[in-house]
Each structure stands twice: as C-alpha cells, then as structure tokens.
C-alpha cells in the first residue's frame, strides 16, 4: 500500500512530488489548530455559553447555545460539533458587534493584509540589502552601522516607535498623514476590487484616494519595517555570511569569476533559508500588526482582536486566532514548498 503510493509519487514531476504531500499534511495541521482554539476557550472558568454570549444574554439564549454547542454532551462530542460549525463557516456571533464573527473578519482582513504586504516588501528590501552590503564589505561603515541597527532594532518596541514617529512626523513636523485609519475621513473608499485601497484606487483611477491611502500607509509600514528589518537583516547576515565564507565562493574567486557573478551565486545559495525566514516574518508582522493597528486606528484584524480582548468578546477572539493560525499555516506551507523547489539537494 505505502510502496504503491510511493511509486505513484515517483511518476509525478518533481514540483508535484513536493507539493502534494505538503497539501496532505495541511489537514492534520488545521485539525491541530482547531484543537488548540477549542480548548483555549475551555480554559475559562465558568459556563462557556455565558462567556460566548456575554453577561446580558437571556437564559433562553444560553440554553439554546448550550444545545447548539452540545455543552450537555461529553467534551469530545463538543469538539466535533465545534469542528463542524467551523467547517460550515460558523465562527459564532461577536458579542461586541453583534455580527457573525466570520463577516467581521472578512471585512477587516484586507486592511491588515495591505499593511502587512507593504511592510513585508519594505522589510525584505532593507533587510537583504543591508545584510549583503555588510557581508561583502566587512569593516566598512555599513558593517558597523548594521551591527548597531541590528542590536537596536531587536530592542525597540514597535508600539513605542510608532508613537515616536507620530509625534515627530505628524505632531511636530506635520509631514505625515494623521494616524486615524486607512484613508482621509473626507474621502470615500474606492470601489471594492481587491480590498487593498492603494490598488483599488489605482484601478478606479482615483489618484486623490491613492494619495491619501498611500500617505496613511507610510508611518505604520515604516514602523513595522524598522523593527522587523533588523531581525531579518541579522538572520540573512548569518546565512549569507556563511555562504560567502564557503569554499565554493573562494574557489569561484580563484577561478577569476567576476565579483558580481559571485554575489549572485551566493545569494542564490542563501535563498532557501531566506525564504524560511521571510515566512516567519509574516508571522511576526501579523503579531506586530495587532499593536501597530491599535496606534494608527487601522480598523483591521489586529484592532478587532484588541477590542475583543478588552470587551471579553470571546467568540471574536476565538475566531481571530483561528483565522490567524490558518493564515500562518498556509504561509508556512508555501514557504516549505518554495524551499524545496529552489534547493536541488533536497531528495523528494
């Protein structure tokens, strides 16, 4: 049976051989995530139904929810019921907004994704560039500067640097846009295409909105990038530095291969671990977005989660965590697949 499967696998092209087993692995991983989110709420003292409905709930509503969640049954039956609800897209009703949690999350997801997307691009650009320059030109100004930056960036709280940036560039200098949401309150949102205001405004050809949206993105994106690029840079430095010191780079130099060709080859060799690091970065950024969104009143998933915490809105919190973990799992999946695709040494 197993060998038959393997044989079938070996007939597929290499890329599919890598992707298929990974996809199969996603199912048990998602199951594990469901397990954790389910028991998270069970940690709470008291009646989960009351917690999920809030203190204002009528006894009838509590009894109804108890029935629906199967709270009168054993915990395993409850877990299965929970899984079934999630599979049907039922994440419960938010106590605070009174909307279905799934609707709330879908509404807010583009704001967070847009923020993370641009932060990611800036972070990778800064991190990789600084890392490569500091390794290739050791002892230079960049080398010393990056060392100080690497230490400092790891120590700066993102919520604090965000506030400092607001103070300097908005309150004092007046250069930056106000930290109140994704777009000027006087403007209306661009028609929905992707949910990214910058892209939607471009599609609609509305440059006023584009300008406002880009301006609002500037400070939060810089906040996220400044803090996270340091970590990315340090990890890339160590990966790229190891490759740069490896015998094959020295040998290429002894063979008279031009320096820029060698740098390209070394980067190509550092790519697999860098892809993994960038994958982790998405996780960091999602966590950091929770704080940064709060500061900039961003109205995304992060701010929603913070509100849920402050209002003891457990269905919303549970839903957010589930979606966040699922998102990260998918990112890791993509990272794993890319990693194996770019490294020919990995035996399938």
């Amino acid at each position: 049976m197993l060998t038959g499967l393997r044989r079938f696998q070996q007939m597929l092209p290499r890329s599919l051989q890598i992707i298929l087993p990974r996809l199969l692995l996603l199912a048990p991983q998602m199951f594990g995530v469901l397990f954790v989110t389910f028991f998270l709420i069970r940690l709470l003292p008291g009646d989960p139904a009351v917690l999920l409905l809030g203190n204002m709930a009528t006894p009838e509503a509590v009894a109804q929810l108890r029935e629906r969640l199967g709270l009168n049954d054993s915990i395993w039956v409850q877990f299965i019921a929970y899984c079934r609800n999630v599979l049907h897209g039922d994440l419960g009703i938010s106590i605070f907004t009174s909307h279905p949690v799934l609707t709330d999350l879908m509404e807010r997801a583009p704001a967070t994704l847009e923020l993370i997307f641009y932060a990611m691009i800036l972070t990778v650009a800064i991190g990789l560039l600084l890392a490569v320059v500091s390794v290739v030109r050791p002892g230079g100004f960049t080398d010393v500067a990056t060392r100080i930056y690497g230490l400092a960036a790891g120590a700066i709280p993102d919520f604090w640097i965000g506030l400092i940036l607001i103070f300097v560039f908005f309150s004092k200098l007046g250069w930056a846009a106000a930290p109140f949401g994704r777009i000027d309150a006087m403007l209306s949102e661009p028609p929905y295409v992707t949910g990214f205001y910058t892209i939607d405004a471009l599609v609609a050809g509305d440059f006023g909105v584009l300008h406002s949206a880009a301006g609002r993105l500037l400070l939060p994106v810089i906040t996220l990038a400044v803090v996270n690029a340091g970590a990315l840079m340090k990890m890339t430095q160590s990966v790229f530095g190891k490759v740069w010191a490896s015998p094959f780079v020295r040998h290429a130099r002894a063979s008279g291969v031009p320096e820029r060709v060698i740098i390209r080859a070394a980067l190509r060799n550092s790519l697999p671990p860098i892809i993994t690091i960038v994958g982790f970065l998405v996780g960091f950024l999602l966590g950091a977005a929770v704080l940064v969104e709060t500061i900039f009143s961003w109205g995304g998933l992060g701010q929603y989660a913070v509100q849920a915490v402050m209002n003891s809105d457990y269905p919303a919190l549970q839903g957010f965590i589930l979606v966040a973990a699922a998102f990260i799992l998918v990112v890791y999946l993509i990272v794993d697949i890319l990693y194996e695709l770019v490294d020919p040494r990995i035996r399938v």
């Binding site: 995530v33 996780g283 989660a305 965590i321 966040a324 990260i328």
Partner: peptide
C-alpha cells in the same frame, strides 16, 4: 508555534 506568538499570548 503555528500561532503568532504575540497573538497567542494575548489570547491566553
């Protein structure tokens, strides 16, 4: 560890 560390900490 599939959960972003800050998010999980916040929830817990």
């Amino acid at each position: 560890q599939a959960f972003p560390i800050f998010v999980l900490g916040m929830a817990l």
